[in-house]
């Protein structure tokens, strides 16, 4: 819970971004998002300008979570890959480590096979990054300071006015 905060540092994001960029280049996909299972967007690469990525992250994580329950009902622990096929654009989701989901959005310029191939490779690389991050977070500890909570209180009064 709160003791288990997800903390990501720039160094890791750079690694993650470069893995995602390489995967996008190889698979010729449009964009990739890395979302944690709680619905928070971690990072993204590619053409995400036309997307509301915040909402997308929440919905995709919800979608992934619901398939986990479906998996349990059929005797699986979790489905590791999910694929939504559309008319033009398609979405490939795969599990990364134990708490993140890699989402690749692609169109007909490439194929599901290519995306799967590169996504699998990227997923295992990202898994390693997250493993390293886990150790690091525990070592360093998160960084919400006292002032943060105090200044937030002031901001709230400004924004939440009846």
């Amino acid at each position: 819970m709160s003791d288990d905060n997800l903390i990501i540092y720039e160094e890791e994001i750079e690694k993650i971004d470069s893995i995602l960029a390489r995967m996008l280049k190889g698979a010729e996909a449009k964009c990739a998002l890395l979302v944690d299972k709680d619905g928070h967007l971690i990072t993204r690469q590619g053409f995400t300008h036309s997307l509301d990525t915040t909402a997308l992250a929440a919905l995709l994580a919800g979608s992934f979570a619901s398939t986990k329950e479906i998996a349990r009902l059929v005797g699986e622990s979790e489905f590791s890959v999910l694929f939504h096929q559309g008319k033009k654009d398609h979405i490939h989701m795969s599990l990364v480590g134990d708490r993140s989901i890699m989402v690749v959005i692609f169109d007909d310029r490439t194929t599901i096979g290519m995306v799967r191939l590169y996504a699998k490779e990227a997923s295992s690389e990202l898994g390693k990054v997250f493993m390293a991050l886990k150790g690091k977070s525990q070592k360093q500890g998160p960084g919400l300071t006292d002032e943060f909570a105090a200044s937030a209180g002031d901001k709230l009064d400004d924004i939440f006015q009846d």
Partner: peptide
């Protein structure tokens, strides 16, 4: 509505701060 929301945000940040050991985690 806003009273409730302000309070929960305040409590969440307090809790997050309590869970954090912020000394070592200065941003780069």
């Amino acid at each position: 509505v806003f009273d409730t929301l302000k309070m929960i945000i305040k409590l969440v940040l307090e809790k997050a701060k309590g869970a954090s050991r912020s000394t070592s985690a200065t941003p780069k």
